[in-house]
Amino acid sequence: MARLHVGCAMWTHKAWPGRFLPQSLPARERLRAYAGWCNAVEGNTTFYATPARSTVATWAQQTGPNFRFVVKLPKIVTHERRFVGVESEMRAFLDALEPLGDRAVLWTQLPGSFGPSDVDALGRFLRRLPADRRRAVEVRHPGFFTNAGSTSLLEGALADADAEWVPFDTTVFFQSPPTSEAARDAWAKKPRLPRRTRALTDQPIVRYLGRDSVEETVEGWRPWTAVVADWLREGRSPTVFLHTPDNDEAPALARRFYDDVRTLVPGLDALPEPDPVQPATLF
């Protein structure tokens, strides 16, 4: 059965206690509370350090069987060594993630310097990953988006490994200059690449960066609600992550995106209602 997963770049954030999470909540319980709002999360912290297997086991315990983790590979693998001599690091990483089973997608995010000439190395690496693990790749080199030959080359390598291409759509964010400190910081750091909406597998993944304004963020995602609705009708199960420069409203935005898609696909199940944290409206 096709499912839609929505989520954020993290499961805890300084602006969320008292709004999306209880005011005082131990760290070991925050993922459980977040999972009442969203049914997916990006695993960005694993880029910096491989967690202990016991820590990952608590992640599994705090989430249900349909919750999805998209977990970033360590930077030593992707950015520092670029797949060369990383066998021990990958063994440790895969062992640590074992408690998540098939709920975890292995997310290979590559630097902007990783270009078309490096695709063969990427393909060899992907094919060595365990066959029972989902694979996803995010590239940032402009050539993959602007040169048809480079696009086809990467798509072929991903198809051979049954891996998905993860687009990070920042087109709405860069439509006008930043208006906050958080937006100015994102303006300097985030990639500026064309929007890509083609799915390669039955479980496509999208990362969408909106703006400070909720209204602009919602209006900007309209193309994605249509694409995601089509994917669902095709029997695919997409995952969509909602970002804004400060991420203060991200859990509510993720749910609002889900509801917008549901108006186009009425047969899609509603998300469970989260436990109330405060009675005030979110927007």
Rank of each mutant, 00 (worst) to 15 (best):
G115Q: 07
A104R: 01
E80W: 14
K72F: 01
R68I: 10
V86H: 00
F83G: 02
D102E: 14
A57V: 02
D102Y: 00
D118G: 02
Q109C: 11
D95P: 03
S113Q: 10
V71T: 15
R68A: 12
D102H: 11
M90Y: 05
A57E: 12
V77D: 04
R103L: 06
A57Q: 11
V86I: 11
I76H: 10
S54N: 08
A52F: 11
F69Q: 04
V86T: 12
A96S: 15
L73K: 09
G101E: 08
R91L: 12
N66M: 10
L94T: 09
V56Y: 02
L73E: 06
T78A: 10
P74N: 01
S113A: 12
F83W: 09
L110V: 10
K72T: 11
K72D: 08
E87F: 10
S113D: 12
T58W: 04
V86P: 04
K75Y: 09
Q109N: 06
G85Y: 01
R103Y: 09
K72R: 14
K72H: 11
P99S: 04
E89L: 03
P51K: 10
L106R: 00
R81H: 11
L97W: 03
K75V: 10
H79K: 12
A60D: 07
V119C: 02
G101R: 04
G64L: 05
S113I: 02
A92D: 13
F67W: 08
V105A: 14
V71Q: 06
G64C: 02
V77G: 04
F69M: 05
P65W: 07
V70H: 00
N66S: 14
F83D: 03
V70D: 06
V71G: 09
G85Q: 01
E98R: 08
S117D: 14
F69S: 05
N66P: 01
V70W: 03
E87A: 15
R53F: 02
R103N: 03
A96M: 12
V77T: 08
P65F: 03
V86M: 05
H79N: 08
F93E: 06
A92H: 12
A92Y: 02
R81N: 12
P116F: 08
L100Y: 03
V105R: 10
F69H: 11
A57H: 07
A60L: 00
S113H: 09
F93W: 04
W59M: 03
P99R: 11
K72A: 09
R103P: 06
L110M: 01
E89Y: 10
P51W: 13
W107N: 04
T78N: 01
P116L: 06
E89Q: 14
V105P: 02
S113F: 05
P51Q: 10
S88E: 15
R68T: 06
T55Y: 12
T78F: 01
F93G: 07
L106A: 07
M90T: 11
A60T: 03
I76F: 06
Q109T: 08
L94K: 05
T55K: 13
H79Y: 06
L94W: 04
T58H: 13
V105Y: 11
S88K: 15
G85L: 08
V86Q: 08
E80A: 14
V86A: 05
G85A: 10
G64W: 00
